[in-house]
Structures are given as structure tokens and as C-alpha cells.
Design a protein around this nucleic acid. Structure first.
Lengths: 149, 149
DNA sequence: TATTGTTATACTCTATAACTATA
DNA sequence: TATAGTTATAGAGTATAACAATA
């Protein structure tokens, strides 16, 4: 290809497509989650904290791929809303075990329902098979992220 | 579904997938474009400015979906590197027409080649049909953005 | 010495407000 | 009055550095 050939238009560039798709979904999610007092990031925190194994702040931060200093403010906001509680770990007193309160579980359930609905609406322009392929393709692209375990 | 059912794991959530896919590609792109002195955003500016019709700063900003105040700094950096030139429009002296210099065209050609290569590597885990479906699916999801024209 | 939580700080990205000049 | 470019400023969002408590 010659150096002065037409560059690909923006709408055909993967970077552009991913960025704008992410942004469009984020906007719709923020709107849908607003009634529950959490944003997408905070909902993700509730999700990782809702597992069987209680997590400390660093552990939760690791699951989400954010810094532990970022986690402090996230937990602060959730705790202010009564959705989670910090308690000192008896086994390692440096650690804060963070657990969902009953209100936190309720919020998680409702917000998750809203999130699923937003996702469904977002994917509505695609037929079922295409939507499934999209999700699987994205999962495959990220699978190598941490390498094989 | 009961309110206390398991929420979907992060890796199955579209928001998570889009965000991390975008971030992974952005990191790879930044690395690949570094030798050419531009980042992904600046390359996109070169692309929109390389069309047949000369654009003013606001017009270019509109194409990229950024504010005109953001465009000032972008053009500043490109002009400092000698990749673009501002000139006052003779028809409307409020407007800066921004055009690529020969060095800008050369940079665009090389950087575009690097970008295509990064995209190819990024999509390598997918077979050809799946990769094509991914791109088309993202285009369809964004098609409604501005509504039918 | 290393790790956890915390705070203060800084950095990046982007938008809003206000100014100048032009229309 | 409205628009284009510019500057100053502010607001998210997130990371780095440093400190206290604990291991």
C-alpha cells in the first residue's frame, strides 16, 4: 500500500469502535444504575465482595485491577451508604475484611437486574447469535491477559 | 431470579469486557505508535485532516467527538512537531484551516501501517470470521448513535 | 523488612467559563 | 448576537510517595 493511500475511516478502526461502544454503554449504565445510588464501578465492587470468600481491600482491588489507594475511596462511599462494612481481620490485624450488609445485598440484587436490562437493550440491534459471538470474542481477546494458569 | 442469586462474574459483563479490551488495545497501540511521535488520539486527528475537504478546528473536533478547547492542545502538539499547519481561512477569518504538512502525510502513512499491524496482532486469537463479526457488531451497536441521516 | 490501610499529592484527560476577533 | 480560537480553571479518575500499624 502506498504511503499516501487513504487511511481507514474512523468508524472502521477497532480502537474507535471499542472506545465509543464502551462509552455508550457506560452512559446508559450510569443512567440505569442512578436510582440505586451506585455507579458501574461501585457495583463491580459489590459483586467481587459478594463471593463466598470474604476479601480484604487489597484482595478486592486485585480482582478489579485497581490500586489499593483507589479502593479506599470506593469502600468509603459504599460504607457511607450502609452497603458494606469494614471489620479488622482477627487473623491479620493489618487487613480490613469488607462485607456486604443486608442493604448491600439488596442493592446488589436490584442493581444487577438493572444492569442486565441495560445490557439487553444495548445489544438489541444484534441478533442473538451475533451478540453471543461478540461476547465470546471479547472474552477470547482478554483471555491471554494473565496468561494460562 | 431471586435477589440473592449469584451476580454474573466480572468476565461475563459487557461493560467489563469492553473497558478492558479497549484498554488493552490502547496500551498496545501506544507502544506501537511511540516511534512515530503520535498517540492514538493524535493519529485520529491526522486521519480526519487528511480528507479531501480542508477542515477548521471546530469541524475536526466535531468529527472526533471532542470539544473545541480540547482540539487546541491536540493541534498545538501536532504543529510543534511540524505535522500540521494552521492558516487563517480567507473566507472566514475566524477559522483556522488545519492542513497536513508533507511530514504529516509521511507520519500518517507510517503510523497507520503500525496501527493496522497492532490491530491484526490484537485480533490474532480470533479466526477470521469471528474477527469480522466482532467489528461489524460494534459498528451496528454504534450505528444508532446519531440516528439515521 | 514487607504488607495493609490511609492520606496527601500529582498527573491525565476532558469539559465549562470567559475573553478576543471576527461575522 | 453568534461563532471560532484561545486561555484559565475545574472536575473526574487514577496513580505514586510517604506514614502508621502490624506482620
Amino acid at each position: 500500500m502506498a504511503a499516501d493511500a487513504r487511511p481507514a475511516p474512523l468508524e472502521s478502526r477497532l480502537g474507535y469502535l471499542l472506545k465509543h461502544a464502551q462509552s455508550k454503554l457506560a452512559t446508559a449504565s450510569a443512567e440505569a444504575l442512578a436510582p440505586y445510588g451506585v455507579d458501574g464501578h461501585e457495583l463491580a465492587v459489590l459483586v467481587v465482595l459478594s463471593g463466598d470468600v470474604p476479601l480484604s481491600q487489597v484482595e478486592a482491588a486485585g480482582r478489579l485491577g485497581v490500586d489499593r489507594t483507589t479502593m479506599v475511596a470506593l469502600i468509603d462511599r459504599l460504607e457511607d451508604q450502609g452497603l458494606v462494612e469494614r471489620r479488622r481481620s482477627p487473623h491479620d490485624r493489618r487487613k480490613n475484611i469488607v462485607e456486604l450488609t443486608p442493604a448491600g445485598r439488596e442493592c446488589l440484587g436490584r442493581a444487577e437486574k438493572a444492569r442486565r436490562e441495560v445490557e439487553r437493550r444495548f445489544l438489541a440491534p444484534l441478533d442473538e447469535g451475533t451478540a453471543a459471538t461478540l461476547v465470546r470474542a471479547l472474552q477470547m481477546l482478554l483471555a491471554e491477559e494473565r496468561g494460562p494458569e
